[in-house]
Simulated assay, not measured.
Amino acid sequence: MTSEPGPPILAEDLLLLLFRPSSGPDGTAVVAGAQTLPYVLAGAVLTDLSIGEHVRTVPGWSGSTRVEAVTERPPADDLLRSTWDHLAARPRGVQATLAVIGPALRTPLVERLVARNDLRRSTRAASGTPSVELLTDDGSGRRAGLLRGVRDVLAGVAQPESRLAALTALLSGSGTLPQFHPEIPWTAAARARARHLEQGNWGADAAAEAVARSFAATMVSNVIFAAAVLRKQ
């Protein structure tokens, strides 16, 4: 964690949205899709790296796809840099990369959200029990803004910019979007738009596949192609 976080990365925005304020006991926030969270956050990191042209895909054995770091373009953000360093050693399979980087992401991302005053950390203990860490919405308004952006995308209000479209697709692929109803109306039109984003190589299909395979560590290589599509738009 850095003492003065830079601009939020895509995985921070995704995690902030997945924390549902007032959905847990005593008004605390709980995270939606917690069991698949590592894979979805990892997909967001790879998508961010690809949008910034820090990584690219290369052919692997038997038609597979690997990811390699673009040597001359290391990212400035330390979390993104950690994944970039992992890929700089040698090209790696997408699924293997997600399985390695995903489990370590939640804690530093939460620290960033607390440092930005997007989440508030507190502790609570009952008699005879250990203290429990609680996370609640700190009222910064950033989550509300992101939520409004995703709602507008799914309502077809406007053509989304790249990061917001990727964020919406990752939420959809994680299988959590129906849990946001009625904040984000889960209508037939919204489902169709969400699926369209997933099929547009935003990387969300990979998250959906992780859910379908009993939370297995798998994401298809489309997670990387999102930025290539965006850069041509």
Rank of each mutant, 00 (worst) to 15 (best):
L164K: 03
L164T: 12
A165E: 15
A166V: 13
A166E: 09
A166P: 05
A166N: 08
T168Y: 09
T168S: 14
A169S: 15
L170H: 07
L171V: 04
S172E: 12
S172V: 03
S172D: 06
G173Y: 04
G173N: 09
G173R: 00
G173A: 10
S174C: 12
S174A: 15
G175W: 06
G175P: 09
G175K: 07
T176A: 14
T176G: 04
L177R: 07
P178R: 13
Q179A: 08
F180Y: 11
F180T: 01
H181Y: 13
H181I: 09
P182G: 14
P182M: 13
P182H: 13
E183C: 14
I184L: 08
I184E: 02
P185N: 13
P185R: 13
W186Y: 12
W186G: 07
T187S: 15
T187H: 12
T187F: 04
A188P: 00
A189D: 11
A189Q: 10
A189P: 00
A190M: 10
A190N: 01
R191D: 02
A192M: 00
A192T: 04
R193A: 10
R193W: 00
R193V: 09
R193G: 05
R193N: 03
R195C: 05
R195T: 08
R195L: 09
R195Y: 03
H196K: 08
L197K: 03
Q199H: 13
Q199D: 15
G200A: 14
G200I: 06
G200F: 07
N201W: 05
N201C: 05
G203E: 00
G203H: 05
G203I: 02
A204F: 03
D205C: 11
A206K: 01
A206Q: 01
A206D: 01
A207Y: 04
A207F: 07
E209G: 05
E209W: 06
A210W: 00
A210L: 02
V211K: 04
V211H: 02
V211R: 10
A212W: 01
A212C: 03
A212E: 04
R213T: 15
R213F: 15
S214L: 15
S214W: 11
S214I: 12
F215G: 10
F215C: 13
A216P: 10
A216L: 13
A217Y: 08
